[in-house]
Amino acid sequence: MNDAQTIAVEVIGIEQVTPQIKHFKLAAVAGGSLPVFSGGSHIIVVMQGADRIHKNPYSLLGSPQQLDTYEIGVRRMEESRGGSHFMHDRVVIGSRLEIAHPVNLFGLDKIARKHVLIAGGIGITPILAQLEDLHGGGVPYELHYSVRSAEHAAFLERLRRREGDRLHTYYDSEGQMIGFETLLATQPLGTHVYVCGPAGMINHVIATAKACGWPDSHIHWEQFSAPPVGDAFEVFLARSKISVQVPPDQSLLESIEAAGVEVPYLCRGGVCGFCHTRVLELDGDLIHNDHFLSEADKAKGNSIMPCVSRAHCKRLVLDL
């Protein structure tokens, strides 16, 4: 993607739905409908900050049937590098943003016999749109939604109204936990499970499902990583023949882009593999933060996902 293909949107609604989550409604500046999408899709939101551009992925949580607005939910990250703080502190009604066309890396399986959806906290956002795709489809489904406490349960009224007894809520504050072992051991053949939430929850669901004998193809998850902060280092782009400094609070991808070199990307969250880049030389260690490369590929050390991963080194040479 490049920025020529973005859509200009205006913020037409903001609601603080939990102490940490704001709900934004976006409409096309040009008017009319936004592009059709499928449940589970995300958009990249491009934010023009004071000294840099932030590009963060956010799941679309509104109905794919209602295209006059897109809805996103943004959790204020404690260790934010700026994007979520920008959305929370700087964006007001009337603010203009750029967004990319939706991409779906977390789609529903169309031949599933049943869907089990599991959300933790802000992970409810892609699942809200998946639920819209399931309404009226005739395939059974159930939702398990886990949050810290009632005040942290974003979009709960909407879910209660639409899902009725398909919705199961769990509050940490009251000692309620999703019984993953029982849940996953008792599903009929042909069931698919979808999980979005904290890393610990995702890993636990995957491990439990595998232990219960679920095939990999029936386990779906999505977790966008924010690029972690790290040490500064220098990267040399072999084809462009330029050196770029990567500061501690900027990702490798952002630093390369700031130097005027375009890298193809889709999700900017370590999921899709689109920015996969060859490492030509390295005098230290790669710090892989993506969910795309296998452990074996990470150990080889000859490629990197610059959207979320970085290096602990003096100098890294990339095939860019």
Binding site: M1, Q5, F37, H101, L266, G273, F274
Partner: peptide, 11 residues
């Protein structure tokens, strides 16, 4: 296949 799996809407 790898390319097509990432084919984008509108492109």
């Amino acid at each position: 296949l790898k390319f097509l799996l990432n084919l984008r809407l509108g492109q």
